[in-house]
């Protein structure tokens, strides 16, 4: 399979590392030979229709912060040109999230579909802004569109719901969908420290963004609720349809009072046909959603199976490459590979 990667940060590099380390496995177990023919970041691009030398590309990108230094590398914002001009089967769209405009991911994805290329993305922006449009465009163009990594990171929330549970009617999905806030709440409860101090430390550890507003105020979780509502429940929901309360007002005392009553405070996203909501909730210890640290957890309420819960890492380049690679193999199979 010929692959174009747009965005070469944590995840772009993460998926390339997986291609390198798992080359034998992918060929043996799935008959899949991924060939990365072009990579673009914000500064430029590297192209080789015969397949880029990934270990070399990774080394250059890690050293200089861009792929431009790869032999024959070009400078400039070249993503759209690559998508149009380089022949490939699949485009990975892995650029930063913008939840207002969806850009630059939205344009990348549309262009890729228009060019008849399958699309895999981890980027919530385009999904939140234009889910229906993209879904329809993919169908019209006859291309596959996968976005497993956009919700739950490594946790196969969308795949489980849309494939293995597809015999059920899903009445509710709820989950701890943001690792940063879960980490903050877990430490507040364990150490009784105020939020600001833990946020600062989380930033130093790379577990929180420089501007953690989207996480703390529940917007990131609301984006995921919106994506689940659209993709799994089939509701044409917008981000503004989600009633959102973040964790900003949660005090260390509140986490202690909860703990004394055998409960934990978790930021929970809830998607139901009649209501979309994000807010801090009390979760009894031992409950499927009572996961600590940066973990994510999701529970489905189903008419046949009852409740099913899954948990795992919601972020991290290696962990999330599990979902990206799963999407690629899924497309490979769908196409008869």
């Amino acid at each position: 399979m010929r692959i174009i990667i747009i965005g070469f940060g944590n995840l772009g590099r993460g998926i390339c590392r997986a291609f390198v380390e798992k080359a034998d496995f992918l060929k043996r177990a799935h008959g899949l030979v991924p060939r990365v023919v072009a990579v673009a970041d914000e500064f430029g691009a590297a192209v080789d229709e015969k397949g880029l030398d990934l270990p070399r590309l990774l080394k250059i990108a890690e050293g200089s912060g861009t792929v431009v230094g790869y032999p024959g590398g070009k400078r400039g914002k070249l993503a759209l040109d690559l998508i149009d001009e380089v022949s490939a089967d699949v485009v990975f769209e892995l650029t930063p999230t913008n939840i207002r405009t969806g850009e630059p991911g939205l344009s990348h994805i549309k262009r890729a579909m228009q060019a008849g290329k399958h699309v895999i993305t981890s980027n919530k922006g385009p999904l939140v802004v234009a889910f229906k449009e993209l879904d329809a465009l993919a169908k019209k163009q006859g291309v596959e569109f996968r976005y497993s990594a956009s919700v739950g990171g490594a946790v196969p929330v969308i795949g489980l719901a849309k494939k293995l549970l597809s015999g059920n009617e899903i009445s509710e999905i709820r989950g701890v969908l943001n690792g940063t806030t879960n980490y903050i709440l877990t430490r507040m409860s364990a150490e009784g420290l105020p939020q600001e101090i833990i946020i600062r430390e989380a930033q130093e550890l790379g577990l929180a963004e420089k501007d953690p507003t989207l996480d703390i105020d529940g917007i990131d979780t609301a984006c995921k609720v919106t994506i689940l509502a659209n993709s799994v429940l089939g509701i044409n929901a917008k981000l503004s349809d989600v009633k959102v309360v973040g964790i900003r007002r949660i005090t260390p005392e509140a986490t202690r009072l909860a703990h004394e009553a055998g409960q934990m405070i978790k930021l929970v996203g809830i998607a139901r046909r009649d209501r979309l909501e994000v807010g801090p909730k009390l979760v009894p210890q031992g409950h499927p959603l009572a996961v600590g640290g940066t973990l994510n957890a999701v529970t489905f309420k189903l008419d046949l199976a009852g409740e099913i819960s899954i948990t795992g890492f919601g972020a991290g380049p290696k962990e999330t490459s599990s979902s990206l690679l799963g999407d690629l193999i899924d497309i490979h199979r769908t196409l008869g590979g």
Partner: peptide
């Protein structure tokens, strides 16, 4: 005031 209710109280 911020009210935090149980996740099961829906």
């Amino acid at each position: 005031l911020l009210l935090v209710t149980s996740v099961e109280a829906i």
